[in-house]
Design a protein around this nucleic acid. Structure first.
Lengths: 336, 336
DNA sequence: TTCATTTGTTAAATCGTTTTAACTATTGGT
DNA sequence: ACCAATAGTTAAAACGATTTAACAAATGAA
């Protein structure tokens, strides 16, 4: 990169002060107004010179000395998944507001990869981590937490760990949409879920069972657990479901929903005539199906702003004064 | 971040050598084999100690001294747009392979925001930039290029600028899908496009016109240009199109496609009975419509790998020996 | 007047690496 | 025996900021 670096030294020379003063002014001046222990003339002059020379602080130097990089690492399942990419966008905007940057890393739900990318981000020197834990990462996270890394869990929790987190009230959300299916006449409702051990899908399964029980439908419940990234069996499963008289699917994640919906149409069935759908996260095309699809709209913006708020509150905590960890549970919104 | 930093100094002491040697070994040792001008005993010892103490180089220090941050900035329209988030994912993976990181920033097609985020990334100290230019950023980009910044344009070009780029053959792609519509019986085909001045949509419009001309349908062509993020008029437009006897839409981008498709259904029309659709980028639910939707599948992985390859070739160029800029045009794949 | 506090500023150390220039052995050619 | 080249290593100077400890001058209290 061609960068004719103007340094703090140039400014110091030009303004006739020391580099220490320049540094102090540059990093503490707020809107040109009164600055503790600095002559306002002087500080104005420094600011002016900096402006004139188009001074841009070198962030590597700053990071080296101060130990703060101004970067938050975000580890999520897959940034190409719309749910996460939407979160990513909000996180990006949030970070910008704090004068921070975010670096994303995808794990593909693989705990080994999770470990690897976390380590890369740590080496890179992030000031905090926002993590979407996947199955099998409990130990890695526990280790991070106990070594004092600034962490916020997102979308999923790790039970028995004192660490900040922001999650949806998944159980309630799942219960609500299942009830909505029931109120629209569904009686044989299958749940399609993932086989991975992840807090949010487990909670959603509970919500499904809750609703079925509350409606006296416990006689028929079925949870079909699909392994992540092995979707071969879906075709057979859907046709069998039809045979079993299933008339609605309650689906745990957006990826699974799209697969099931496609499959339904591929087999010549229709929504809502053959099946109704309850699912998580919206898709621009769901509206087409009218009341055939109920979905949980997750407050993605709140996920992002809360997570960033939490991670920032730890970043800015005075050394020694660790802020208490905070668990936040957000309410779902039901649509469709 | 709590990090009990093991430094190069610790290793030097432990291994009984100088820090210079440690640094040299650490950054040049490839798989433990012969290392220029270093006793293999010594280098093995250094490596061992580093391993034992779990040495992690401090990247801020490295960046400060070497001037390389190991980070590429990626500026795109909106990372929550599936097309870009998919690219983002591939870029992330690619970068990882080069031992690099990427930082994303979204512009929302706003040239002022573009300028801002580029400046943030530059200050952060990226080794290169992958840019999706938006309308009105020509000057900003020209300026960057002429100041020697390592740049690769993605998805869109800026005419008259000697800079590397990776784009789709948009004109040809648009021509192909329009022809496919025609071959399936469409005659009154509207194109829905953006009003922004962006190379790829302009090219797609040309492709549409090409196909219409080639089929002798130049008598009826219509390009509806929508302003970015002001989609209020779509509803009226669709119903008017129906009145005009339009029986197919050729749509320039994925966002517009979803809007139009939703609107079609909202107004009680059907695909393919009332309208056929030709569009760009796939959506998991398009398959439902069978041959009613033709779409261009962009080689997103190639976009990413080529862009990263280009930016990396500049990063690793010896100072003074600037690699020539390279323009890459990728071929589309038609599906549906 | 004298001592204490506050104001305004700076010299110098430090962060952890990379990199340059140089130095001592050792080898080999003549 | 002499010189040149090569191998192996290191001391020390960057890189550009932040931060600590200290100092001089001005102010105020007694």
């Amino acid at each position: 990169m061609a960068r004719n670096q103007i340094t703090i030294k140039d400014i110091a020379r030009e303004a006739g002060v020391s580099t220490a003063l320049v540094s102090f002014v540059m990093s503490n001046a707020t809107a040109g107004e009164p600055l503790y222990r600095v002559n306002s003339e002087t500080s104005k002059r420094v600011l002016e010179v900096a402006e004139r020379l188009r001074y841009k602080p070198n962030s590597s130097a700053r990071a080296l000395r101060s130990g703060k990089t101004g970067t938050i690492g975000v580890v999520l399942s897959d940034i190409s998944n719309p749910f996460f990419s939407e979160i990513a966008r909000y996180l990006e905007d949030q970070a910008y507001g704090y004068d921070y940057n975010v670096i994303f890393a995808s794990t593909d739900e693989d705990p080994e990869k999770f470990r690897r990318v976390v380590s890369v981000l740590m080496n890179k020197g992030v000031d905090g981590l926002i993590l979407v834990p996947c199955g099998g990462t409990e130990d890695t996270i526990r280790e991070l937490v106990s070594s004092g890394v600034n962490i916020v869990l997102l979308d999923r929790t790790v039970p028995g760990l004192d660490v900040s987190s922001v999650v949806l009230d998944n159980r309630d959300a799942a219960k609500c949409i299942t009830e909505k299916l029931i109120s629209r006449g569904a009686v044989r409702i299958d749940m399609v879920s993932y086989s991975m051990n992840i807090s949010n899908t487990r909670d959603r399964e509970q919500g499904y069972l809750d609703a079925m029980a509350a409606a006296g439908l416990s006689g028929y419940t079925h949870i079909e657990r699909i392994a992540h990234n092995s979707y071969g069996g879906i075709s057979q499963y859907v046709s069998e479901a039809k045979d079993r008289g299933v008339n609605a699917f309650m689906i745990a994640t957006n990826t699974l929903s799209l697969l099931v919906i496609s499959e339904i149409y591929k087999q010549g069935f229709r929504i809502p005539d053959d099946f109704m759908i309850a699912c998580f996260d919206r898709n621009p095309l769901y509206d087409i199906y009218g009341s055939g699809i109920v979905y949980v709209r997750q407050p993605v913006d709140a996920f992002a702003s809360k997570a960033m708020e939490l991670v920032m509150s730890h970043v800015s905590a005075k050394p020694g004064k660790k802020r208490p960890e905070e668990q936040i549970v957000l309410s779902p919104e039901i649509t469709g």
